[in-house]
């Protein structure tokens, strides 16, 4: 067994970290868009909006039922073949689209569960003082559903950060792609990929810390 090249590994850290912003940008954009789409889907499912509800179910079953990599290939390689206007779609855009749709399908279900999890009698109380459905959702149900949903949504966000590594299959040089390139040049695969693993692990640790802080704040109203 060969000894690991420690100097090479340490030298690689600043090289790879240059690509960290792109990874985080894709994850952040994907998360924001996925949250918006997931809230929309969840509200449609909870209120059982005619027609749209069927569409939402179909959407969720497709994006939960197929691998993310397959979806990314469909967006990047497949769609431009059908619609020539999409030929210009770049790997980053395709990745953000894929992450958004894939994760919104999962997140919609956990947001829906959180909305249903808010005590039904509070909805009745809100109706009884004359609030409209939109008002009671915004002021009573969603704030409480947020608290219930935060732990699972944070989980999906962590998963999404890691899933951005698939972008390298669409030719995007992000964290994973840059490690791949470095390793291909030096043939030190283990060194390159273990550094990538450590960097991902570090981001996840930071965000777990943020999650604990967020949960603590959101729980303040509910502790005796």
């Amino acid at each position: 067994m060969n000894v690991l090249d420690l100097d090479y590994m340490l030298g690689l850290i600043p090289v790879l970290l240059k690509y960290l912003p792109l990874t985080l940008e894709m994850a952040a954009a994907g998360m924001v868009l996925a949250l918006v789409l997931a809230c929309l889907l969840a509200v449609i499912r909870v209120l059982k909006v005619p027609v749209l509800d069927r569409f939402a179910m179909l959407f969720i079953s497709f994006f939960r039922g197929t691998p993310l990599l397959v979806q990314l290939f469909l967006f990047y390689y497949g769609l431009p073949q059908l619609m020539s206007s999409l030929t210009a779609i770049n790997g980053i855009t395709a990745t953000i689209m894929g992450l958004t749709m894939h994760f919104s399908a999962y997140m919609a279900e956990s947001i829906r569960a959180a909305i249903v999890g808010v005590d039904r009698s509070q909805t009745e109380a809100a109706l009884s003082i004359g609030m409209t459905n939109a008002q009671l959702m915004r002021r009573i149900v969603l704030p409480q559903a947020t608290r219930i949903a935060v732990p699972t949504l944070m989980n999906y966000f962590l998963d999404m950060i890691k899933a951005t590594s698939l972008a390298f299959t669409l030719g995007v040089t992000e964290l994973m792609g840059s490690a791949q390139k470095e390793a291909a040049g030096s043939f030190l695969y283990f060194e390159a990929f273990i550094i990538v693993a450590i960097i991902y692990r570090g981001i996840v640790e930071l965000l777990s810390w943020l999650q604990r802080y967020l949960e603590h704040r959101l729980n303040r109203a509910y502790s005796r």
Binding site: D119, S121, Q122, E124, A125, A126, L127, S128, I129, G130, T132, I140, P143, Q144, R147, A221, Y222
Partner: peptide, 21 residues
């Protein structure tokens, strides 16, 4: 809506808004 705004309701299980003081 108009009817609900002319009546008020007190619930058996209180049903206070848990996110509000």
């Amino acid at each position: 809506l108009a009817l609900r705004r002319r009546t008020a309701f007190v619930f058996q299980n209180y049903a206070l808004f848990a996110n509000k003081n």
